[in-house]
Nucleic acid binder design. Structure first.
Lengths: 166, 166
DNA sequence: ACCATTTATGTAATCAGTTACGGATATGTC
DNA sequence: GACATATCCGTAACTGATTACATAAATGGT
């Protein structure tokens, strides 16, 4: 091993500071997703991390439509649509047209889905605790990200750049 | 407009807390990337935000190999390889085999690349300032993300989960 | 010099999200 | 009731990253 595992590297990346933030966020996200995925694999459960937000919303028992979920989770409806197919294919979720509005497709956990929810509850719980622990160790990174989102909403990057340079 | 643009939504997402962190980071990253992209388009410059880290490394004048860049920027060498092709296709970067090690391909800005670097310098500068401003407004979110990376390196998510639940 | 192993790079396949667009249903106005 | 418009959802194409695999060059022990 000729150089430290990543130290000089990391510092260099950090020196780019804010400019490279986007990429760093992406990589961090990929990393946590991958790690979570491995946890399901270890347990031999046919469940994918990217299903979690939808699955978790439905766990409450309240049926929701595709767009409801998209709005709540801040993703495109297409994304939800794809996750829905996957969850239905696994038999974890069922859907039917809304009686009052035929355009809406209402999703709910199947019996199998509810059983899996119960089975995975301890894991979800552990995941949640681990994430909370992680966040605490990082000095409430979530709050910082909240503030970042707020700041961007208040004034988008483009306008900030314009203000700093015609 | 039947409900506030995103308020109840945001709070709900936040309530998921750490568990949904991965997705939120991804979305935030996508957003900043898109906004930055628009800035180049506005100026009619054929430049993409994802080239920036590589381009910026080479701006110093020091030639670097694909793997050098990958190590420094913490991305896969494949990613660098693809960016290299794009930058060469645009004529901004040139490459040649290392004289001492034929496996290595050494990259450097072309004259056109250096000209663009000079032309975009004010924009890069403004971007940097905007990002610094943003970061300050968010109470140093970058530091929080650094701490998150550190914490994950210290003890990966998987082990944390195991510790919270057999 | 020779062969095994490691390193640097590239190509192909995959993945999880997006935008673009189209079809079906609701809604509001005449 | 009919037509214009808006909303819900889905399919297709694109994006930007990754892993898996392949190739070429260097290195080291014999």
């Amino acid at each position: 091993m000729e150089k430290a595992p990543g130290e000089p590297v990391r510092d260099t990346v950090r020196a780019y500071g804010a400019a490279a933030l986007g990429g760093r966020l992406r990589r961090l996200s990929d990393r946590t997703d991958r790690e979570a995925k491995a946890l399901y694999e270890e347990r031999g459960v046919a469940f994918e991390q990217r299903w979690f937000p939808v699955f978790n919303c439905l766990r409450s028992g309240e049926p929701m439509s595709v767009t409801d979920l998209a709005d709540r989770l801040q993703v495109s409806h297409v994304s939800i649509s794809v996750i829905r197919s996957a969850l239905e294919k696994e038999g974890l979720v069922g859907s039917r047209a809304d009686e009052r509005d035929g355009r809406r497709r209402v999703l709910a956990l199947t019996d199998k889905g509810m059983a899996l929810a119960r089975q995975l509850a301890p894991l979800f719980d552990a995941l949640d605790k681990a994430a909370i622990e992680l966040n605490a160790e990082a000095g409430d990174a979530i709050a910082a990200i909240d503030r970042l989102e707020d700041a961007l909403e208040r004034k988008p990057l483009s306008r900030r750049v314009e203000d700093h340079q015609g």
